[in-house]
């Protein structure tokens, strides 16, 4: 049962990623990106990363995707109907990407992966919080400075010059 669910989620994530990449209408691409992010969040749940799934839904779907939709709306005149942009050099790109995918897949299937069997953890949030406050305290603080810098930089770049 859960195996079937896993493959359904994987299929949704990959299929909507194809729509993101190949659809000519940019707005449909952004909507398909929602399903890709949700599918990846579902895969996180299968990987026992429930906190990360929540973070994925909140930040990607709630934050980044809204930003991308704003970007699409602000850079196209709504009155002009076609929010579409065709792709460029699709043939060469497809050959390169399929080659890279086959190399990656061959490497993944050929490597004898070491497997450590573990029990499913009873809690994830507490352990992540403890690691963030002890071992990864410096990167955590640096990340807050980075977010502040990005906030100021984005506000400065996008305001009208006068």
């Amino acid at each position: 049962m859960s195996s079937v669910l896993f493959w359904i989620i994987a299929f949704v994530a990959i299929g909507s990623a194809f729509i993101v990449v190949l659809n000519k209408n940019l707005f449909y691409s952004a909507i398909a990106l929602v399903f890709t992010f949700m599918g990846v969040a579902g895969l996180y749940v299968f990987l026992w990363a429930d906190f990360m799934a929540g973070v994925q839904v909140m930040i990607y779907v709630g934050g980044i995707l809204v930003l991308i939709l704003f970007g699409i709306m602000l850079t196209n005149r709504i009155s002009s109907v076609n929010i579409s942009h065709s792709n460029y050099h699709q043939g060469i790109g497809a050959v390169i990407v399929i080659g890279i995918f086959f190399i990656l897949g061959w490497m993944i299937l050929e490597t004898p992966w070491l497997r450590i069997v573990e029990q499913e953890p009873t809690q994830t949030v507490g352990k992540i919080g403890r690691l963030l406050m002890t071992e990864y305290l410096l990167p955590f603080e640096v990340a807050s400075v980075l977010l502040l810098a990005a906030l100021i930089g984005a506000a400065m770049l996008s305001r009208k010059a006068n």
């Binding site: 990623a17 699709q90 990407v97």
Partner: peptide, 11 residues
């Protein structure tokens, strides 16, 4: 691979 395809082919 799909993301790379979008990066190199989209305008």
């Amino acid at each position: 691979s799909l993301g790379l395809f979008a990066v190199i082919t989209r305008r």
